[in-house]
Design a protein around this nucleic acid. Structure first.
Lengths: 108, 108
DNA sequence: ATTCTTTATCGTAATATTGCAATAAAGCAA
DNA sequence: TTGCTTTATTGCAATATTACGATAAAGAAT
């Protein structure tokens, strides 16, 4: 059907899935990686860095913003984007219990 | 178009996106969390734990297997699933550079 | 005022995803 | 063998996603 049955799952499960889904496209990974390598917020260069049409990049930025993974501030003519650290902290916390298991010996 | 233009992005970016996408559904998050709370591999109870039809659960398990996030071994009548620790290690390593940034003060 | 730059939105087409009923396949139980 | 249990696969319908051209909106530059 294409529609996800969120209602059967916990808020935490839906939240983690939503963040993971937002990161689940190479263009959005590229945007996040680009932002993470810049010391400050990035104004107006994302469209030049991502090899997709401007409309498509804008759409991906919108999704990342909706998921809370990035922030966008209007700065005169252009828009400055940066990582939303608070959301990334939550993302990290949600994955940590599973990542912890990778430090232990394999069970089977 | 629904089709993703992978070829414009690096293998690393595509790999990370693929893992994130595999986790980008609450049912798949629920499956992973269930497996992560069991001490050993889980044989035949996943269908009872996930509130979706058997065919749908099977489909989600297939996607997780394809992404390498879980392993499935035939055990007589049923199939035993467990987390694929090696892939989770890679997943962790790929996210670590971004997660590291959450430990620093916000830039702007 | 007009033009340029930058980003968002709309409309559309192609493809992917989600979900389930029905059915198949493969082993166990009687 | 016959039936039961468990999981996979097929086929289908409904919805979501991806991508882009065209256009709008808003400020900057001339």
């Amino acid at each position: 059907m294409g529609i996800t049955k969120n209602e059967h799952f916990s808020k935490e499960q839906n939240d983690l899935a939503y963040l993971a889904k937002a990161l689940g496209h190479p263009a959005r990974v590229a945007i996040i990686e680009y932002l993470s390598t810049q010391a400050n917020c990035v104004c107006g260069s994302i469209v030049d860095v991502i090899p997709l049409a401007q409309a498509t990049v804008s759409q991906h930025l919108k999704e990342l913003k909706q998921a809370g993974l990035i922030l966008g501030n209007v700065e005169g003519n252009s828009i400055c984007y940066c990582l939303n650290i608070e959301t990334w902290k939550k993302f990290k916390q949600m994955l940590e219990p599973i990542f912890k298991l990778t430090e232990q010996p394999v069970c089977c």
